[in-house]
Design a protein around this nucleic acid. Structure first.
Length: 563
RNA sequence: GCGCCGUUAGCUCAGCUGGAUAGAGCGUUGGUCUACGGAACCAAAGGCCAGGAGUUCGAAUCUCUUACGGCGCGCCA
């Protein structure tokens, strides 16, 4: 039940609706002051009385009883204390009856949201710079589906551009088919790095690369065969990572997919009089909007990134008729997306307002920026392997008799990688360090998973909690705080979807886990004084486990039964 | 030069549409302990919320400004 609304409906404030009053209601900083509070300072202006007097008057008029057990005017605030038993009963029955669907809704009404994330580059190994987009996009995908939207995951493959000419040039010169077949993308990476080194001394390689790229564009059979092979190798390599992270896509239409779909876009721009020649290139002038021009066609008549993104947006609108289309791409590309969205708007696409750049911060190494070409990168596969290894070592030490240690170590290790990437606001830059990802203490997924294992262990010992339970006469602070944390989950999911911030869910996990551990420490569950109290606490434990399991699942993190 | 973003405890970060004494984790110091899983819990120390001005009854939160840092700014993606 909505307590704010309940309270607001019983507060007659002249000239304000119950909704407006409800929106003013907040939570006091200290629970001993009450559970809800109405600050009366804003009302003072409307009612032309002092806040303290208003609080007193409203307090006198408020019908105490039912779910609100106490109302008190303090320094211009009107504080309410709710009937804890009633509130906790509501929370638990909600969480337990909804089960796996606790926190879910159908508010999305099946509307389609396209999510462009991960965008793997062909012939490049997956490194930690690709982690944020992948894991953020996948989390948003799940969160939106949980709320009744229909997510469409799009891996906008980076499979077009002169670098593939370079790669073919490199392969023709130093490539060894068996070697590459065996080693996969890392072998491709090696010859690519070598090509750049050699090109410094032999600029003619650049021309050769350009010629090969032209052949790709002309669909030369030999070049296309090579290119498709590179693509296949890359996807095989990256699929291992996606499987570990449990990331899925509904479409792999990438840049090359749009290579023949840009003509109509350019034509439309020209027809609408948006195109202009400048220094030999075709541009859309955006000076009126405080932005540099958006280049549509190069001097040589070929297209660019922006042109392709516009073709892609139009294609997606036509294909999926999306309600929103999200681009989970680093903030580096801020200007690029602002330009593309603006040009689409100028083209008269009313849906241009539904395009959203979900920007996140950059990853660097302690020794500076990463660079595939220079070879200073940290590959995600290595990071995941190390995390799983460490998890395995700890599990073996703490719980040597566990039969499925590999499986547990995988959930713990992979969880740590995902959680680490999702725990902070996405806009923050990240300096990668092994010390940080390999730290399993404190505010981590491991702590949350451990809490779940503890809760499950208690439930198992109880032999499956009795399905029926009733409220005890008095609710302890620890029980109440835990129940409130559990109750915050549905709104947290909504906020995470609205702001495209999965970190809100990650932080809720830690909050619930902390409150559970406090409760667990202070309140005996199995040896509670009475059976009724025991059953109530078991219900609270079940609700906690359900909440944490649902929350972690949205982030893509599994919960081992034991660890 | 212009634009976008960031700046909160020693470190890494929370802080909801402005609201009552600014919160976590790590680290430090000291405790809990025959525990329903110690991968836990408790406590202490540690803050001029980058500086300044403004709006307001009230600002870490809104506006302006300065500093520092990151990113971007026509034929790469």
């Amino acid at each position: 039940m909505d307590y704010k609304k309940y309270i607001a409906e019983r507060l007659p404030v002249e000239g304000m609706t119950a909704e407006e009053v409800a929106s003013l209601i907040a939570c006091p900083p200290d629970p001993s002051m009450g559970d809800y509070a109405l600050p009366c300072f804003k009302l003072a202006k409307v009612l032309r009385k002092s806040p303290a007097a208003i609080a007193e008057a409203l307090c006198a008029a408020f019908p105490v009883g039912g779910v609100v057990s106490k109302a008190e005017a303090v320094n211009g605030y009107l504080n309410f204390t709710v009937d804890r038993a009633a509130m906790v009963r509501d929370i638990l029955s909600e969480a337990l009856s909804k089960g796996d669907r606790y926190g879910a809704s159908d508010a999305g009404m099946g509307r389609v949201v396209c999510i462009d994330y991960s965008s793997v580059n062909i012939a490049k190994r997956f490194h930690i710079g690709h982690l944020s987009t992948t894991v953020l996009g996948a989390a948003i995908y799940r969160i939106l589906n949980f709320l009744g939207y229909k997510s469409v995951g799009i891996n906008h493959l980076g499979d077009y551009g002169t670098q593939f000419g370079k790669l073919i040039s490199a392969y023709k010169r130093w490539g060894n088919r068996e070697e590459i077949e065996k080693q996969g993308v890392s072998a491709l990476n090696d010859i690519y790095v070598r090509w750049h080194k050699e090109a410094e001394a032999h600029p003619e390689l650049e021309d050769e690369a350009r010629a090969y790229f032209k052949k790709i564009e002309e669909k030369d059979p030999e070049c296309m065969a090579l290119f498709d092979w590179f693509k296949e190798l890359t996807m095989k390599d990256v699929q291992k990572i996606y499987d570990l992270l449990d990331v899925r896509f509904d479409s792999y239409a990438g840049e090359s997919f749009y290579s023949d779909k840009m003509g109509p876009v350019v034509e439309e721009l020209r027809e609408k009089g948006l195109l202009r020649e400048s220094q030999g290139a075709q541009i859309v002038d955006l000076e009126a909007y405080g932005m540099p021009p958006c280049i549509i066609l190069k001097k040589d008549g070929t297209s660019l990134y922006a042109t392709r993104d516009m073709a892609a947006a139009i294609y997606r609108k036509n294909t999926y008729d999306f309600y929103k289309c999200l681009y989970v791409v680093a903030y580096q590309q801020n200007l690029h997306f602002r330009q593309v969205f603006k040009v689409l708007e100028l083209m008269g696409k009313p849906w241009a307002k539904d395009l959203v750049h979900v920007a996140y911060g950059m990853v660097s190494l302690e020794e500076g920026a990463m660079s595939t070409r220079k070879g200073n990168v940290v590959f995600l596969e290595d990071v995941i392997d190390k995390c799983i290894e460490k998890a395995y070592a700890i599990v073996s030490e703490k719980n040597p008799d566990l039969e499925n240690k590999e499986e547990v170590a995988k959930k713990v290790g992979v969880g740590a990688v995902i959680f680490g990437a999702l725990y902070n606001s996405k806009i923050k830059d990240i300096v990668f360090s092994y010390d940080k990802v390999l730290n399993f203490e404190g505010e981590t997924s491991v702590y949350v998973q451990y809490t779940c294992a503890r809760a499950r262990s208690v439930l198992q010992k109880a032999g499956g909690a009795a399905a029926d339970w009733e409220m005890p006469a008095a609710i302890a602070d620890e029980e109440f705080e835990l129940a409130k944390a559990v109750a915050a989950f549905p709104d947290t999911v909504l906020a995470a979807a609205e702001k495209y911030e999965p970190c809100l869910i990650a932080r809720l996990c830690v909050d619930v886990a902390q409150k559970f551990n406090k409760f667990y420490f202070d309140c005996k569950i199995l040896s509670a004084e009475t059976d009724a109290l025991k059953n109530f606490r078991l219900a609270l434990t079940r609700a906690t486990l359900q909440t944490l399991t649902n929350a972690l699942a949205l982030l893509g993190i599994g919960v081992p039964e034991k660890m």
